[in-house]
Design a protein around this nucleic acid. Structure first.
Lengths: 124, 124
DNA sequence: ATTCTATATAGAAAATCTTCTATGTGTCAT
DNA sequence: ATGACACATAGAAGATTTTCTATATAGAAT
């Protein structure tokens, strides 16, 4: 856990363990933002939720659970749980109409994730 | 789990529970691809790994663990574990040079994730 | 009123994840 | 050779996730 000053770069202010190190690197994503963004990635970290969002994103805001459940070999409470995870993460919005609940993808949230990846790729 | 044919749309081939349903929706992401992609999202589903990749992506392929550990209040084995998760997911590549290991972001993997999100947003 | 249907919630078992301490391995300096 | 350092691995405790069965709620149809 201790970081000796490299003999090769004694003029550095920050400590480096080798001449190839980058002791000046700064986090561009603070802890609060990292928590929020990691939560978004976590919501898509399950294959069923990823496929659910694939379906919901195709539906133009008119996707009912009955349109989802035929694609998955899971019980209704399990699907209900995964939908809740997507909703609580902010990836989808749900609206009740009579007995049914319709879901739509939350584009701005997806764009946030895309922007982060773009930053990692070097697009910004 | 049973899906009655709607009385409002008896001509539909697939079952719909309401007139607003989309019984024709097809998965664009098959199960194998969903598993692979969900694995990528899972690797970024922890705030520390997300911040680690933020740092590594800035370093131009020359990021050593000593450049990471100053930013996190975690033990060395824990950081080593998170690095392994990123590497096994394919998000970073690691190369040993003498005593040190240097990490670089795997751009093509990040692009895969970005493409999926683009598909969800409707960019393709 | 009763029943059916769509969806949500409760709670529990099993699996997985996160983090730690302790220890191992390989490289370098003395 | 010996010791110091960078990093990896083993294994365990505790937290979280995934999935199920059972049950609740609430709107519609009979």
């Amino acid at each position: 856990m201790n970081k000796p000053i490299s003999p090769f770069a004694p003029e550095r202010e920050l400590e480096a363990c080798s001449p190839r190190c980058n002791p000046d690197l700064q986090l561009r994503v603070d802890e609060m933002k990292a928590d929020q963004l990691a939560g978004l990635f976590k919501a898509l970290s399950h294959p069923v939720r990823l496929q659910m969002l694939d379906l919901i994103s195709q539906g133009g805001g008119e996707v009912c659970v009955c349109d989802l459940e035929r694609h998955f070999d899971l019980t209704q409470p399990t699907l209900s749980h995964h939908i809740k995870v997507l909703r609580e993460a902010g990836l989808i919005q749900s609206e009740q109409n009579r007995v049914w609940v319709f879901h739509r993808a939350n584009i701005s949230t997806l764009q946030q994730m895309r922007e982060l990846l773009g930053q990692f790729i070097g697009l910004s």
